[in-house]
Design a protein around this nucleic acid. Structure first.
Length: 503
RNA sequence: GGCGUUAUGGUGUAACUGGUUAACACGUCGCCCUCUCAAGGCGAAGAGUCCGGGUUCGAGCCCCGGUAACGCUACCA
């Protein structure tokens, strides 16, 4: 370890200043879950005069999306959340982007290697997969078998001389780990159920677990407020703090936002992109208000308020949340992210706007100059009079499109195979760069693979996106309409057809 | 399968330290208002608090045992 002024423990006998953080991964569109956890952290920090840190966890090179980081900043700002330290605003504990901290992780993992709490493992992905398959076949829990836990120095040197890639794993000792969850109390895990977690991947990047613990320590985070899905990996984190000889922060695990069927919120069943909410015309005040309703936390209205204006008790601003929200009062049951209620809230905010503000809201979102300009270029050569604008562009202005089967099922296809193909299109477009050229290429490839003619292929997509077999150029329209809204439309189509099929 | 977490109307929440008939909001339905649709007003249905035991004069709140749902179980976060 080199000299590092940030090396003092985050918790000294005199209460250190509260510091919290969110650590989103730039792997796609900014997620409502990120906003939810961000909101809770923001409130917690603001209430206690603490600092709120934004850290970008971009250690997964495979899933990295270059445009994602800026979208995260924009979406959180849109909601009114601000942070004291982060990649964009700097701060005393930077860098705040994990990809810029790899030297730090290497340095720290070296400490673990030296003190015997971590070790090199030379198996490659195939070997591990084979091991996993054997364990599953034998009905054993799939787990790393610790084969390389105690390689001799000679073996290690030999492997390294060959240039064989390796990962660094945490050496989980015998026993058990108990940690306190501030919302639930003590939680204990037997170490027999804790895997020798990979800390450093063979590409030299840390895994979440290592980077997270090292950064939280170096950034002097006092309270880790994150989603419930992290509970099972918390013992690994605690073990890491111990391996380094560092005190642990407080842990608060927030309930997971859910779909209507109670599963963890997902794009299949709900719009989860904050971009979607912005583009389809939700007001940020409504979205943040709705998020504040999730999991309780706001005080219940007094009887007087109930009599005089019960509604008021569910409508509150970010500032009011900072004043009244109590993080420790959070309910633990996973709240359903119910669009119906969000829409009601949004309508309340919309109605409360002055006519002028309402018009401005409209003109800055679904009828913005930029949007209208982009649309207009699509139809200029296709209209006889300007009055036909609406006829040709309605599908780009509407919230919902529901094409009938005679429109979306090609003549020589069955509804079943068409639906299947549409699902393939959707899956493909989800991971495709949102440009005309990129989409055209992958769609045509898909068509060839599945023996769908270009005409059938694009006509189907056109039907789903525009609700008609006639439209301005499809891919250009999709680009203008935007990835978030287009994909949501495709997903809603799948969803609707599935529901119809089950009836 | 293993481990962990959670559980109040369809949904979000409420119910002081156990204390009357489990409250509020969204949604749904009906009525009123109204050129329509919303909004607004009035009203209704909808849970006996996951299930089974126990403690207690009294349990949604405490204890024990189940069940279900969800999460984790990657060189993803």
């Amino acid at each position: 370890m080199t000299e590092n002024s940030a090396n003092t423990p985050p918790q000294t006998p005199t209460q250190p200043p509260i510091r919290v953080r969110i650590a989103p991964s730039p792997t796609g569109d900014p997620h409502v879950g990120t906003a939810y956890i961000g909101l809770i952290n923001f409130i917690y920090a603001r209430q206690r005069g603490g600092q709120f840190v934004l850290r970008i966890e971009d250690t997964d090179r495979a899933r990295f999306v270059a445009t994602s980081e800026q979208m995260i900043f924009d979406a959180l700002h849109w909601l009114g959340l601000t942070w004291d330290e982060g990649p964009d605003v700097g701060g005393p504990y930077g860098p705040y982007r994990q990809s810029e901290r790899t030297a730090i992780y290497r340095e720290y993992v070296e400490i673990l290697l030296k003190n015997g709490t971590a070790y090199r493992a030379f198996e490659d992905a195939e070997e591990l997969e084979a091991l996993r398959q054997r364990q599953i076949a034998a009905k054993l829990p799939p787990r790393y078998d610790g084969a390389h836990r105690s390689l001799t120095q000679q073996q290690i040197d030999a492997y390294r001389a060959e240039g064989r890639p390796y990962v660094i794993r945490l050496k989980v000792p015998e026993g058990s780990t108990t940690f306190r969850d501030e919302l639930r109390g003590d939680i204990t895990f037997e170490h027999s159920n804790v895997d020798d977690q990979v800390l450093m991947k063979s590409d030299g990047f840390p895994t979440y677990h290592l980077a997270n613990v090292v950064d939280d320590y170096l950034m002097r985070i006092t309270d880790v407020i994150r989603a419930e899905e992290w509970i099972s990996s918390t013992p690994k984190h605690v073990l890491l703090y111990q391996a380094f000889g560092w005190p642990t922060p407080r842990f608060w695990h927030m309930p997971l936002l859910r779909n209507l069927d109670k599963s963890k919120i997902s794009k299949r069943k709900n719009p989860v992109s904050l971009v979607y909410y912005r583009e389809t015309g939700f007001l940020p005040q409504a979205v943040i208000n709705f998020l504040g309703l999730m999991g309780g936390g706001m005080p219940s209205p007094t009887p007087v308020e109930v009599v005089n204006g019960a509604k008021e008790s569910e409508i509150f601003s970010l500032d009011e949340m900072v004043q009244k929200f109590e993080v420790p009062n959070i309910r633990l049951g996973g709240p359903v992210f119910d669009l119906t209620k969000l829409k009601w809230l949004n309508s309340e905010y919309l109605r409360a706007l002055t006519p002028d503000a309402f018009f401005t809201a409209l003109r800055s979102t679904v009828l913005s100059d930029d949007y209208l300009r982009n649309i207009s270029t699509l139809i200029q050569t296709r209209v006889e009079t300007l009055g036909q604008f609406g006829d040709l562009t309605a599908f780009l202005l509407k919230d919902n499109i529901l094409p009938p089967p005679e429109v979306w099922v090609p003549k020589k296809r069955t509804p079943e195979e068409t639906l299947l193909f549409a699902a393939d299109q959707l899956a493909l477009l989800e991971t495709t760069e949102w440009t005309h050229e990129a989409m055209e290429l992958v769609l045509k490839q898909l068509g060839e693979e599945k023996s769908w003619s270009v005409k059938e292929n694009f006509m189907l997509l056109r039907a789903i996106v525009s609700g008609s077999t006639m439209s301005p150029p499809l891919l250009e329209s999709m680009v203008v309409f935007g990835k978030a809204r287009t994909l949501d439309r495709l997903r809603r189509f799948q969803d609707t057809q599935k529901k119809l099929a089950h009836k």
